[in-house]
């Protein structure tokens, strides 16, 4: 049972760290100053979201949630590319 406790508290710690990372990226998103900065923050937020989804799947014990993470990985890529093409006036 002791090892179980260890891994449980490690998961707690990881979740708190991920939450802090989320907050920091959110700060950059809210502050800007330029659109490109916000896009970087958006990208980082999405990727932290992927980790958060995997963690949620672990917490709930449902492996099927991982499919959502896969879709997320795709979206973070496409979203950034669309916005980047918009910024360089190539859309």
């Amino acid at each position: 049972m002791a090892e179980f406790f260890v891994s449980e508290s490690l998961i707690y710690l990881a979740a708190i760290l991920i939450g802090l990372a989320f907050l920091l990226a959110l700060f950059r998103f809210l502050k800007g100053p330029s659109t490109a900065d916000r896009v970087v923050a958006f990208d980082v937020l999405t990727i932290i979201g992927i980790t958060a989804i995997a963690l949620l799947a672990l917490l709930e014990g449902r492996g099927i949630y991982l499919d959502v993470a896969l879709v997320y990985a795709l979206l973070s890529f496409l979203g950034v590319i669309v916005i980047a093409r918009y910024l360089e006036r190539g859309l």
Binding site: S34, A36, V39, V40, D43, S76, F77, V80, I81, I83, A84, R85, L87, E88, G90
Partner: peptide, 10 residues
């Protein structure tokens, strides 16, 4: 890849 595209755009 997305970082590179974004850096170029910026």
């Amino acid at each position: 890849l997305s970082s590179q595209v974004l850096a170029r755009a910026a």
